[in-house]
Every structure is written in C-alpha cells, then in structure tokens.
Amino acid sequence: MPGSGCRGSDEIKRLGLTGSIGAGKSTVTRLLRERGLTVLDADEQARLVTGEPETLERIEAAFPGTVKGGVLDRAALAAAAFSDPERTRVLNGIVHPRVRARMAALEAQAVESGAAWIAQDIPLLFESGQEQNFDAVLLVDAPLEVRIERVMARSGLTREDILARDARQMPAPEKRKKATITLENDGDLEHLTRQMAKALKLLGVEHEG
C-alpha cells in the first residue's frame, strides 16, 4: 500500500511494538526506521510531556517534592509513584493522555507525508489496553535472565530494581498470547533482523524507499 501525498487516517495502517524491560525494543525500533518506516516512540514523548510546565504543575501537586526548580526529579517520582498501584494510576492519568495527544499529532503529520504504515513503540501497550488500536502488534521478547543482564549492563539498576519493574508489567506468556507475532531476541542482531524482515513480509507491511 505504498503511496505519496495525503491519505485519510482511515487508510493508515498501524503497527504496535512492545516488549518487557530489556527485551530489545529500541533495537527493533532502529531496524524499522532503517527500513523506512515511521516509528513513534511513546517513551520519548513521555519525556517531552514531563518537561512541560502544566504537566509538572500537576505532578508536583500529586507528588509533592518531585519537581525541583522547574525540573522533574525522575528518581524521586519513581519512588513516589511506583510504590503503590493506585499512585501509579494517578501518574498515568496525568501523563498518558498528553502522550497520546502527542502521538496522534505525529501520526497526522506522517499521514500528510504519505506514510502507508506507522509503527508505535509503546512499552505498556497491552497493559493499557491499546492493542485494539493496531492492525498488528509485534512483541519483542527474551528470557528473563538475558533481559536482566542487558539492563544491568546499560544502567545503574540493580537486579532487584529490574525485577520490580518487570513485575509491574504483564507477564510475557500473556503478552505472547495477545501479540500478532513475537520476535525472539535471544541471539545476535542478524538473528533478530531476519525474524523482523519475515514478520514484516507476513504482515504485508510496505513502506517508502
């Protein structure tokens, strides 16, 4: 369904991308972009949203002491918001609608540029019940120990920190049941790239370039 020029939003096809912490979503995002697909990153938009004065004001009101000098203290917010499911829901209620609005605006821009498919990288895609918004969902997964090693190697998080974050997400077996296709990121980059190319072909994903 390649094309150029303007197309209606009802013509665009949406590919969801998700995976648990350390699964390798960022790598798949890079590979998709290298193949010419437009990929919108929910985490990137969340970082931008949490730098906006209005958002910061609401966060500080809900979680006093987490905004200092007009800047979000992300560590303090994580400690305050992720210690209890209800407090997490409060934070999500502040941030998520703004992220979705930004993603919708970016999607509209891609539609105007003539994109046929748009991918959205959303870590909590299934947890937030957004799977129905996509024509297909790619899940990136890897064994827990592999994921833990990856995250520890790239961040200052401890094993306990990573396990706590992983526990707040939907278990991998449930995600696999919901996903259209699962990419097994338990090998090298070539192994992952081959799987992704096969998945895109099976899904009929077409793009410019």
Rank of each mutant, 00 (worst) to 15 (best):
Gly51Val: 01
Leu31Trp: 06
Asp135Arg: 10
Phe82Trp: 12
Met103His: 05
Leu72Glu: 07
Glu57Ile: 00
Ala108Asp: 12
Arg33Asn: 07
Leu157Thr: 07
Glu52Asp: 10
Arg58Thr: 05
Asp135Tyr: 09
Phe63Ala: 06
Glu107Met: 13
Val99Leu: 12
Gly51Thr: 06
Thr180Phe: 08
Leu31Asp: 00
Arg147Ile: 06
Lys175Leu: 02
Asp188Gly: 13
Leu17Pro: 00
Val111Trp: 12
Gly69Leu: 08
Ala172Glu: 02
Lys198His: 12
Arg165Trp: 08
Val151Trp: 00
Gln132Glu: 15
Asp121Gly: 04
Ile94Asn: 02
Pro53Lys: 06
Asp121Lys: 12
Leu72Tyr: 07
Ala61Gly: 04
Val95Cys: 03
Glu107Pro: 07
Arg87Trp: 02
Pro171Glu: 03
Thr193Leu: 08
Ala42Val: 04
Glu174Ile: 06
Ala105Lys: 11
Met196Val: 04
Phe82Leu: 07
Ala75Gly: 13
Ile12His: 09
Met196Glu: 00
Val111Phe: 05
Val67Tyr: 02
Glu149Asp: 13
Thr158Asn: 08
Leu139Trp: 05
Arg47Gly: 09
Phe63Asn: 02
Met196Asn: 00
Ala78Cys: 10
Thr55Glu: 05
Glu44Tyr: 08
Val90Cys: 03
Glu127Asn: 08
Asn92Glu: 15
Arg102Leu: 14
Ala142Phe: 01
Glu149Arg: 14
Pro85Lys: 09
Ala23Thr: 09
Asn133Lys: 15
Glu160His: 12
Leu125Ile: 03
Leu202Ile: 13
Lys198Met: 04
Val140Arg: 03
Gln109Thr: 13
Leu157Phe: 14
Gly36Ser: 10
Thr38Tyr: 14
Thr158His: 13
Ile148Lys: 07
Glu206Phe: 02
Leu77Tyr: 13
Glu206Pro: 00
Val28Ala: 00
Leu48Tyr: 12
Glu184Asp: 11
Arg194Ala: 10
Thr193Gln: 13
Ala199Lys: 10
Asn185Tyr: 01
His96Leu: 11
Val95Arg: 10
Lys201Trp: 12
Val49Leu: 05
Glu149Gly: 12
Gly156Ala: 11
Gly114Asp: 11
Gly204Trp: 11
Glu112Cys: 14
Trp117Leu: 04
Arg87Pro: 09
Ile12Phe: 02
Leu37Pro: 03
Asn133Asp: 15
Glu52Ala: 12
Thr158Cys: 11
Thr158Tyr: 11
Ser26His: 01
Lys198Asp: 14
Pro2Val: 14
Pro53Thr: 02
Leu31Glu: 07
Gln195Arg: 00
Phe134Tyr: 15
Leu106Lys: 15
Met152Arg: 14
Leu124Arg: 02
Gln109Glu: 15
Asp73Ile: 07
Ala42Met: 04
Ala179Tyr: 04
Thr66Asp: 05
Glu54Asp: 13
Arg102Thr: 09
Gly51Gln: 07
Gly114Glu: 09
Cys6Glu: 15
Lys13Trp: 04
Asp186Leu: 06
Asp43Ser: 07
